[in-house]
Write a protein that binds this DNA or RNA. Structure first.
Lengths: 340, 340
DNA sequence: TTGTATGCGTTATCAT
DNA sequence: ATGATAACGCATACAA
């Protein structure tokens, strides 16, 4: 397996010129003679010369690369965000390195380390489900490494953030169920350490209180983001002495599981119980019944995350004030919440 | 934004020793004195020293990195493959760089270039939907760059491959429908340039011919892997004078769209038309009705792809014979194909 | 056990 | 317009 890549040195030697001239020609610097430039370009083409990015980055002490860390790319939300981030980064001349934590706190730490070793200039991170200690992130802040958190964040970390108004979204979702005749509304939430889950619970509670329907915590169930636990918690909820006639669910994924469980039990949606959830995955519009869901402006969130990061990356002075961008959500009303 | 990372030079200076000693201590070479080693390690820890991977790779002329290129990480199949590949690569001491083509031929070319510039030592690639010219891949082969194709491949490219027996899988799926009483079976296929789609059509045809049910190409419809076209093609198929009573669909994603379209038309599944598809996405087991689907051993396919690649990477001699690993598939029978 | 010197492929600062 | 030469951060062969 011998593949010795061709370098500017090779080109220089075979053209009998210096490597600096080759380097300049390749980069299209104006001072060099058209003839030599053409000769260099032609030979480079012939030899299929590919610049060594490592050497380039080392020499310039700049990588123009940002690191993106997400819980799991198999969640639609994150792979769509990645696409959006990549596009925005590309336009700004940056490339991205992606890592998944698989929802593990330890992986998150090693991912950050690896990306640091790869000399990324900044980070865009969505914290893992299991992350309840933020020292590894605080360390980046202390080192003045530009960092933007999105979706899964923590209040206490002083960085720029791109998030949605989870309270308002949950409020809106809950009120929608109320308007459609639901009177006992449950909440299938995520793990208790998840900020966004707790915010949504708060919004849900606020809506119920406003309409004088709050019946206490007994209608709030927590799952750990797996299919199995979603099914179990759903069955538990529907086995209450007075089962809910409406349920707000933390994500479409969990809603799919919940609906499956209800189907098995012969519970009809939306007639027996209406459902609203979060994320508006494409499949939701195809599910049967189609799923009412809160949409997040993924495209803009990605663009915004990159914008906030670039702002810090490009800053000449030391102190760019941190900014938290709160995006609006939209309720996509579909079959699962519409009583005839 | 000034963050000057600490280097071995910094450590050397502040300990009044040479950088080579620091380098050795950090890498735990046996020859160095325990006292100095400890001093170095301690200071490195204090300063939160992170080795510069770029410099390291450049110095060793090895990156221990493999490049993975897939059409789109929002397809469950590919993100699951990525997870499996990453795990296997990690165990072998390699890290991976991921790129998405978004099904674009041009992006595929630039992705390969970028990864080459990043000095990846080998590739694991699944071709994009739009790729119908293989010159960019052949070029890698000519340069002796280790490469493994999976899922979306081309016969003509002489490299190692990890694929499933698409013909057999489609045959199995089709025969399953026949056994469940279907007599007019349609096929909702993918784009015509996709090898795997054509192989599945062939398997489907073979099964129909075996049972003397082949009615000609008029029951084969092609979609371009978008929801819209899947819906349109489904409606077209179901508008045939003699609509099918069973349909084989190229992927679960397309099946979701097809089922949605049928639902809209009041066509009952499986009573009016039974459905079988490919990929066995987790959601398929939750869909209503649950979807019968061909399962691919994703975990093993990822492991196998990495194994085949490492085989070439580690080869001292020039010629490792290419190997094509054909994996077995499994029909997961669920509600969409079971007539009562 | 430790230090010196050289190289990895490229850019950048001097000269010429 | 072009050529030497010194970085960039690290590894390593060779000396000491």
């Amino acid at each position: 397996m011998k593949n010795t890549p061709v370098t500017i040195k090779d080109i220089a030697r075979s053209l009998n010129i210096s490597i600096s001239t080759v380097s300049r020609a390749l980069r299209g610097m104006p001072e060099i003679h058209p003839d030599t430039r053409n000769a260099v370009l032609k030979l480079a083409e012939e030899l299929d010369y590919q610049p060594n990015q490592l050497a380039k980055n080392l020499a310039k002490s700049r990588t123009k690369t940002i690191g993106v860390i997400v819980p799991n790319l198999s969640y639609y939300y994150f792979s769509a965000m990645l696409n959006s981030i990549e596009e925005a980064a590309l336009q700004a001349g940056y490339s991205v390195l992606v890592c998944q934590t698989n929802e593990s706190y330890l992986r998150e730490i090693t991912n950050i380390q690896n990306l640091m070793r790869s000399q990324v200039e900044g980070f865009i991170i969505s914290l893992s489900r299991d992350t309840d200690n933020y020292e590894h992130v605080e360390r980046l802040v202390r080192k003045n490494i530009p960092l933007v958190l999105f979706d899964r964040y923590a209040e206490s970390i002083n960085v720029s953030k791109v998030i949605v108004d989870n309270h308002a979204a949950a409020f809106k979702a809950t009120e929608h169920l109320i308007e459609n005749g639901c009177r006992r509304i449950g909440f299938l939430a995520g793990p208790t350490q998840l900020v966004l889950s707790n915010q949504r619970i708060a919004g849900y509670k606020a809506a119920l209180e406003k309409h004088d329907l709050w019946a206490g915590d007994k209608y709030v169930f927590h799952c750990d983001y797996t299919t199995e636990s979603a099914i179990m918690q759903t069955l538990a909820m529907m086995s209450l002495p007075q089962p809910p006639d409406g349920v707000v669910i933390i994500s479409d994924r969990m809603a799919f599981s919940a609906m499956y469980a209800m189907n098995q039990k012969g519970i009809r949606i939306p007639d027996d119980v209406a459902i609203v959830s979060f994320n508006n995955e494409p499949v939701s519009a195809l599910f049967s019944p189609t799923l009412t869901s809160i949409n997040q402006p993924i495209q803009e969130m990605g663009t915004e995350a990159v914008r906030l990061l670039l702002r810090e990356l490009d800053a000449v002075d030391e102190n760019v004030p941190k900014e938290t961008k709160v995006m609006e959500t939209q309720l996509m009303v579909r079959g699962s919440s519409l009583r005839k």
